[in-house]
């Protein structure tokens, strides 16, 4: 079953101007777009702007969609560009085109070597832990964060992520590994303290 069939809307109908089908497309994909925007911008108002602009542009350009990618990938691409545009406008000092030595597949070796996987789920996902998860992802550079969001949170493939970001697959893999290891270090420090606190109780 294709993505559009499983979501209950028809691209053909949308392209011929059927508004009710476009409404179904919005409900099928708006959570994904809003989540991406919120994680990239960390601000509900900016995330709402990205959401609105993404679907406005999708509506204006739906006839240019040729079905060469999944419609969700096409929407993610629009949303990513919208989010990066807001970052450029608000913080021009951020270098979004930075070439992070992407072809040099090297990373910093892990420092935190504490096994915190044994912590119970209610502790791993307590409100304090969720705040820390958010802090950690916001501490990543924008160029690493967007790769982690698309690949690991939204579950896109390396190929889809590279198409959305106009990067080589090698560059996506390098950034993904750096993002994952960076988050692991951050969380290991946090959960390692939780583990220590539990052992003293």
């Amino acid at each position: 079953m294709s993505e559009t069939e499983s979501n209950g809307y028809s691209i053909q109908e949308i392209q011929s101007g059927n508004q009710s089908e476009f409404a179904k497309l919005i409900d099928a994909h708006s959570n994904q777009i809003y989540r991406l925007a919120l994680k990239m911008l960390n601000n509900p108002q900016d995330a709402e702007d990205v959401l609105q602009n993404t679907f406005l542009k999708a509506l204006q350009n739906i006839n240019k969609f040729e079905g060469r990618s999944r419609i969700s990938t096409w929407l993610y691409r629009i949303a990513t560009n919208e989010a990066l545009m807001i970052i450029r406008k608000q913080r021009p000092e951020v270098n979004l085109n930075e070439v992070e030595d992407d072809d040099n597949y090297s990373v910093n070796p892990p420092i935190q070597l504490i096994d915190w996987c044994c912590l119970p789920e209610n502790e791993l996902l307590s409100s304090e832990s969720k705040l820390e998860l958010e802090n950690a992802i916001q501490n990543l550079s924008e160029t690493l964060r967007i790769v982690f969001i698309l690949r690991d949170i939204e579950g896109l493939s390396i190929q889809e992520t590279s198409q959305i970001l106009n990067l080589t697959e090698t560059a996506v893999k390098t950034r993904l590994l750096r993002a994952r290891l960076n988050l692991r270090e951050h969380l290991s420090a946090f959960y390692g303290d939780r583990l220590l606190a539990r052992s003293k109780e």
Binding site: Q112, I114, D115, W116, L124, I137, R180, L181, R184, S188
Partner: peptide, 9 residues
């Protein structure tokens, strides 16, 4: 811990 990090997010 890397696997757990990804699944938590």
């Amino acid at each position: 811990t890397l696997r757990k990090t990804i699944s938590l997010y």
